[in-house]
């Protein structure tokens, strides 16, 4: 997998293993009385290890695009390839399986299971993949530690702050080591300080090799990415490449050469930083 194509060019190869998601001339038409072209011929390639923001006014097709990339929906026309698999050709079960293993979701409203603890929430996707309980819990504990919530694993979502909930959601999104993490307005319900913390965490995981796709309508959130895809009326208006972005460009370059989300590696490289996250969280 680490073929060295995790570049910042944004035009990665269309079929190669270096591409997490490829959309080819995708159309999505809803029949609401009269046909509504939510997406009207979108072609986009998201390389592995990249950090992409999708912006656009409401009604521009952001949500539809997100649903397609997240394997929640299938296009009316065109192809969507996630992790090398053509989503349109998959059965519903296979699509669910692909979504469960290769896509991690982070939602604006966190969407944690209210009666499961933080640890159980993080472990939930693996539950559906038939991973054993002990292995699951170990993995979830590891990820909770990485997002700085090692001491909150038995708390219910209602006992956590918004920022903490979003960290749990991020840990859950990463638990199956997915091809990409899809975040829908991840900081929409957070105050400015907490937003910065969560976005720092995004950058951190991106630096460790995770492919990030963030859907947002806020410029400063989008600016944390490597490039911004602007949508308008179901089409890509323009793609804006951002230079020298993200925190600590140096480490970003370093991990960009090996675009994997190996938890062991990335944890070792970040021990010092976790403590800082911890203290920031409590404030």
């Amino acid at each position: 997998m680490p073929t060295g194509t995790g570049t910042d060019t944004g035009t990665g190869t269309e079929t190669g293993e270096g591409t997490a998601v490829t959309l080819e001339n995708v159309r999505k038409i809803y029949q609401l009385g009269e046909p509504v072209h939510a997406l009207d011929g979108v072609s986009l390639s998201i390389p592995r290890g990249s950090y992409t923001a999708i912006m656009g006014p409401s009604g521009s097709g952001k949500s539809t695009l997100m649903n397609l990339v997240g394997c929640l929906d299938t296009p009316t026309e065109g192809t969507v390839i996630v992790d090398g698999k053509d989503v349109t050709a998959l059965s519903e079960r296979e699509r669910t399986r692909l979504r469960g293993t290769q896509v991690g979701f982070v939602f604006q409203t966190f969407n944690l299971m209210p009666r499961l603890t933080a640890l159980e929430n993080v472990a939930l996707p693996q539950t559906f993949q038939g991973v054993g309980r002990d292995e699951r819990r170990e993995r979830a504990r590891d990820l909770l530690a990485r997002v700085g919530l090692a001491d909150r694993e038995d708390h219910l979502p209602s006992e956590l702050s918004g920022g903490q909930r979003q960290r749990v959601a991020l840990a859950r999104a990463l638990v199956n080591d997915p091809a990409l993490v899809l975040a829908d307005e991840p900081s929409g319900n957070l105050d400015t300080d907490t937003e910065a913390d969560v976005l720092d965490l995004f950058a951190e995981f991106h630096d460790a090799g995770t492919t990030m796709v963030v859907v947002t309508h806020e410029r400063h959130v989008a600016e944390r990415a490597e490039r911004i895809v602007h949508l308008l009326d179901g089409r890509i208006e323009r793609i804006e490449e951002l230079e020298g972005v993200g925190v600590e460009a140096g480490s970003g370059t370093a991990s960009g050469s090996g675009p994997t989300t190996d938890p062991e590696r990335s944890r070792e490289s970040r021990d010092g930083r976790e403590n800082r996250e911890d203290s920031a969280d409590r404030s």
Partner: peptide, 16 residues
């Protein structure tokens, strides 16, 4: 309903 949506988003099959 929302919980069902969450479970399906994170990979729960219909039979689950």
């Amino acid at each position: 309903t929302r919980e069902i949506g969450i479970m399906k988003a994170v990979g729960a099959q219909n039979r689950d």
